[in-house]
Design a protein around this nucleic acid. Structure first.
Length: 170
DNA sequence: CCCACAAGTCGCT
DNA sequence: AGCGACTTGTGGG
């Protein structure tokens, strides 16, 4: 009846994120939203499974580490839905080391669909867990920023935090 | 099933 | 630098 999920805010120096956990793991992560700072209201606030609390802690650490420019040692389990294609893309995305970038074409080639660069972009946009799945490290072929669901400004900021020199100024 | 759109990429001018 | 063509996957009607 209920694909029950628990939404827990994660405060970072970049703002308050909103992590959404299912029973299987981290199912979603939202960027800080000033205009619609959604504070989750749980009907039953009491029972938060210990497992989820652990994931919450791990997720918080991961976020803060990445925002600080350090690659986290451990990730929470991810419960990502979507199509097989999207999962393939996200899986490829996670292989990108912090501080490094890849192009959409590289990702497309990595999953065996070198021509599906555009579909890759779509899959990135459908990525429910940004930052953990480093969609922001994916640039266009000319090292252009491309786009970003959470806002292009976020993408620039994230890349800069990871020590990536943006081609715009360089 | 058919049509339109998308976080791209390459080639030409 | 600007414009168009090509391609694949997803979403809506």
């Amino acid at each position: 009846m209920n694909a029950q999920f628990v939404e827990l805010p994660i405060s970072t120096r970049a703002g308050k994120f909103l992590a959404r956990f299912s029973k299987k793991g981290l199912a979603g992560l939202d960027f800080p939203n000033e205009k619609a700072l959604v504070v989750p209201k749980r009907s039953k606030d009491g029972p938060i499974p210990a497992e989820i609390r652990k994931w919450h802690r791990v997720t918080e650490v991961v976020l803060k580490k990445i925002l600080a420019g350090h690659e986290p040692k451990e990730f929470p389990p991810l419960d990502l839905g979507g199509t097989e294609f999207q999962k393939s893309v996200w899986n490829a995305l996670r292989k990108i080391a912090l501080g490094k970038t890849k192009s959409y074409g590289e990702i497309a080639t990595a999953i065996g669909r070198p021509k599906a660069v555009r579909a890759v972009g779509g899959a990135c946009g459908a990525n429910p867990v940004p930052i953990l799945v480093p969609c922001h490290r994916v640039l266009a072929a000319n090292n252009k920023l491309g786009g970003f669901s959470g806002g292009l400004d976020w993408k620039r900021g994230l890349l800069k935090r990871e020590g990536i020199n943006l081609p715009s100024t360089g």
